[in-house]
Simulated scan of single mutants.
Amino acid sequence: MSTAIVVGGGIGGMAAALALVGRGWSVQVLERVPEVTEVGSGISLWSNALRALDALGVGDAVRGQGMAEISAGIRDDRGRWISRTDVTTLRERFGAPVVIHRARLLDILRAALPEGVIRTGVAVREVTVDGAVVHDAGTSTADLIVGADGIRSVVRRAVCGEVAPRYAGYTAWRMVVDSEKQLTDFGETWGRGARFGIAPLVDGRVYCFAVYDAPENTDGEFAEVRDLFGNWHQPIPDLLAATDPNAVLHNDIYDLPALPTFTAGRIALLGDAAHAMTPNLGQGGCQALEDAVVLGRLAAEPGGLARYDRERRPRTQMITERSARIGTVAQLSARPLVALRNTALRLTPTSIQLRSMAEILDGTC
């Protein structure tokens, strides 16, 4: 039986383990934290990700977390629509997206894995291309090493050496809020150098994020977020007022430059370790799920890792670049450019919006 060690127990790592187990591999997931949890954050799963989850056998469980009736689009900070999403056509063309709490998605993936696959509290120190993994508990070897350990990946060093993430120029605060009423409006509000996103969850809570331009590594207090967005349109002020500052995640936003390869020897990178991207297209986790399914399909074949690299690298790097460009437009701060941007969005036909989404959402794995 072929053996695999997956370094990292996040969404991509769990999905990779599930894909490999489903192909008959003996798999061990090494996760450095004592308990696999992700708080304060939601994730958008578009049709391409849901197809990947179908391939992993958990698509229906995830779809059960979606909301049936929604509206979506982009507003300005006074609440005026500058772009509306044709949700009906979106559903018919691509299928309905699902917004789910990351912790719930992890629970679904973890529950589908056999007992004993996940080892928590084990930090990986070094990996070699011949399949050795040096970690807190000693050294393990396997036929395949999967680097699913995020943007600061230890595994990536064995594939590409040191690669510095690129700061996008803006920072993000993420929160899940208990709302007094069930919201159905999804989308973002774009201001000048700042954005606020709202994504209702099926349990009545609301996943929110606040993004604004800031120097890298700037410490901040949540009170600053309330000050910056507190006079924007409702329900933004109410959601901020209901947020527990102790349950908020604050992270600067980074992506990775294009790597020359995702594989070396017995190692394959996936997710943020391979192609960390800004969240502007909602595709970071979706692409990690695609990675996992493709890797599971190809890993045992002769030359399979080279094929994985050829299939996944062009697609993910295209999406990374596109996401960065959208972030640049969304974060415009000069008043004339913001006015021009908003006018262009208002004048863009829905058909063009849907065509631009097709290249990403029609992707197969």
Rank of each mutant, 00 (worst) to 15 (best):
R63I: 11
L201F: 05
R192N: 02
I151T: 09
P245N: 07
W173M: 13
Y254N: 13
L354I: 11
D227Y: 07
A158P: 02
W46T: 11
E359L: 13
R78C: 07
A344T: 09
A223V: 12
E162P: 09
R157M: 06
T364I: 08
V36L: 11
V36G: 04
A358R: 11
L105H: 02
R157N: 06
L298C: 01
V21F: 05
V293T: 00
C208V: 14
H101P: 04
L106Q: 12
L30G: 00
G42A: 07
G193Y: 03
D143K: 02
V146S: 00
R93G: 02
E31N: 04
G13S: 04
A258D: 15
G73I: 12
L20R: 03
D149Q: 00
R84K: 14
P245S: 11
R84Y: 06
A223T: 15
M318K: 10
E311T: 01
A300Y: 03
D77F: 09
S47M: 06
T184S: 10
R192T: 03
G59V: 09
A247G: 02
T328L: 14
D362F: 06
V225I: 15
G230Q: 13
G271I: 03
W46V: 09
R195D: 13
T85G: 09
T184G: 02
L106R: 13
D76A: 03
G10L: 04
V7K: 01
E69D: 14
R91G: 10
G187R: 13
A96E: 13
A16W: 02
D244H: 05
G303D: 04
I352D: 14
L106I: 15
V225T: 10
E69H: 13
Q234K: 13
G284T: 03
A4W: 01
P349S: 09
T261I: 06
V329H: 11
V211C: 14
V248M: 08
V122P: 01
P260G: 08
G24C: 06
T218W: 04
T128A: 10
G64I: 13
E38D: 10
I360C: 08
E126P: 03
V176L: 05
D252F: 08
E38V: 14
A68N: 12
W81A: 14
L183N: 00
R125G: 15
G42C: 09
A273N: 04
P165T: 10
L298T: 00
R104D: 15
G22Q: 14
G285D: 04
G42R: 04
G95K: 00
R312N: 01
A132M: 11
A214R: 11
S44K: 06
A292N: 03
G8Y: 02
G13Q: 00
E126L: 08
S83W: 11
D244Y: 07
R310C: 01
V329T: 10
V98W: 08
V6G: 05
D291R: 00
L239G: 08
A194Y: 06
D213R: 15
R119L: 12
S323D: 07
V7T: 01
F196Q: 07
T364V: 11
R195T: 15
S2H: 12
V134C: 05
